[in-house]
Design a protein around this nucleic acid. Structure first.
Lengths: 199, 199
DNA sequence: TCTTTTGTAATGCACTCGCACGGTAAAGGC
DNA sequence: GCCTTTACCGTGCGAGTGCATTACAAAAGA
C-alpha cells in the first residue's frame, strides 16, 4: 500500500479554494492555476484529484450545498427551545448573505446559477437543492398550520414557497448593496408577522 | 465628411449579439470573435465601436435595462383600461422569464449579477436599475393604497418590495426548471389577492 | 481629382488556458 | 532487498484570448 491520504478531504479542500477564487475574483477567473495557488498546492495535484476542470466545479457545487446545509444545521441547534417560527426565521437568515461566509456562499451560488443557464448538469443540481429545501420548508409550515400557529386563512402550501422565494430574491439586492441585511430581515419578519398568529 | 453610420444603433446591434452569445453559450464564452460572428461583422468592427471588451459589456448591460423597460412599456400600453392591480401584475410578468425574450434577458441579468460580485461597475448599474423599478412599484402601491384598493392593514411600503423581491426570487427557479412560469404567476396572483381588496 | 475622415477587415502578438505527459518521492506488500 | 501503487510536481503544447496595428474601401469637402 502506498501513501494514505483522505481523498474526499483533499477534494473538499480544493473545493474551498474554488469558493475563495470565485468569491474574490469571480467565476471566470477560476483556472486550475488559480485554484492550485489558492489551495497552496501544485497544478498537478489539482489534476490528480480532478481529471477535468468540469468535474472540479461539479464537485464544488455539491460541496457548496453540503456547506450550506451544515451551516443551517449549526444555526438550528444553537437555538434554545425554539418555536416553529424561530426555526423558519433562522433557516431564512442562513440563506441570506449576512456574514462573510454567507456572502461567499451567495456569490458562489449566483455564479453557478449563471453557469447553469448553459450547463444542464449545474441546473440539475441546483434544482434538486432548491427542491429539497423547499420541501422541508413546506413541511415546517404545514406542521405550524396543524398546530394552529398560523393565522386564519393562511395556506402553508402558498406561504412556504412565497417566503422562500422572497428570501432568494433578497440575496441579489443585498449582494449589490441595494438592501442592507437588516432591512432584508425586517422584510422577512414582516412576512412572518403576517403569517404567524401573535402569541 | 465620410461614411455616415448611426453609431448608437451599431452599438445596440452588437449588444444584442452579446445577449445572444450569453444566452446560448454563457457569459464566459463572450469573446470579441464570438460577438463579431454572431453580429455578422468582423472583429475589427467590434473593436471600432468598443475599444475595450469591458466597455462593450458595460454598454450591453445598460442596453439590457433599456430593453426590459421597453418591453415593460409595451406590455403596459397593451392593457385596456387597466386597474392598478393589472398594471402591477403586468409589470411583474414582464420581469419573469415566461417567453424566449424574457428568458434571454433573465439569463443575461443573472450573468451580470454574478459578474457584479467582483466588478463594482456592474453592481452600480444593477443597483440603480433595481432601485428605480422598486421606486416606481412602491409609488404604484402607495397610489393604490390612497385609492382604498388595498385591504385593511396592508402597508404599501412593505408589500411593494415584498412582491418585487418575490418576483426576483422566482426567476432563478424558473430558469433551472424547478417552477413553471404559470406556477410562478399563480404565486404572484396569490400575493396580489392577499394585498388587494376583492372587487 | 485629391485629400481627409470614417467604417470595416485582416493579421500579428503576447498571454493564459486546460490538459497531457514524464519525473520523483514515499509507503507498504513481496 | 525489490516493486507496485499512490501522491505530488513541473513542463510543454495547441488552442483561444484581448488588443494593437495595418490595410483598404467608401463617402464627401477641397
Amino acid at each position: 500500500m502506498p501513501k494514505q491520504v483522505d481523498h474526499e478531504q483533499r477534494r473538499r479542500l480544493l473545493a474551498e479554494a474554488v469558493f475563495a477564487v470565485i468569491g474574490s475574483r469571480g467565476f471566470e477567473a477560476v483556472s486550475l492555476r488559480d485554484v492550485a495557488e489558492q489551495a497552496g498546492v501544485s497544478m498537478g495535484t489539482v489534476q490528480h484529484y480532478f481529471p477535468a476542470k468540469q468535474q472540479m466545479l461539479t464537485f464544488a457545487l455539491s460541496h457548496m450545498r453540503a456547506r450550506v446545509m451544515a451551516r443551517l444545521q449549526d444555526a438550528l441547534t444553537q437555538l434554545h427551545e425554539p418555536t416553529r417560527r424561530d426555526l423558519i426565521r433562522a433557516a431564512t437568515a442562513v440563506m441570506l448573505p449576512v456574514d462573510p461566509a454567507g456572502r461567499e456562499e451567495a456569490c458562489v451560488n449566483v455564479a453557478f446559477f449563471s453557469a447553469a443557464t448553459v450547463t444542464p448538469a449545474y441546473a440539475d443540481q441546483l434544482r434538486d437543492g432548491y427542491g429539497r429545501i423547499l420541501t422541508v420548508s413546506t413541511a415546517n409550515f404545514r406542521e405550524a398550520s396543524r398546530a394552529g400557529e398560523l393565522r386564519d386563512g393562511i395556506d402553508p402550501d402558498v406561504e412556504a414557497p412565497a417566503l422562500y422565494f422572497l428570501t432568494q430574491g433578497l440575496v441579489g439586492p443585498i449582494l449589490v448593496g441595494l438592501y442592507r441585511p437588516d432591512e432584508a430581515l425586517a422584510l422577512v419578519d414582516a412576512q412572518l408577522d403576517r403569517v404567524f398568529r401573535p402569541r
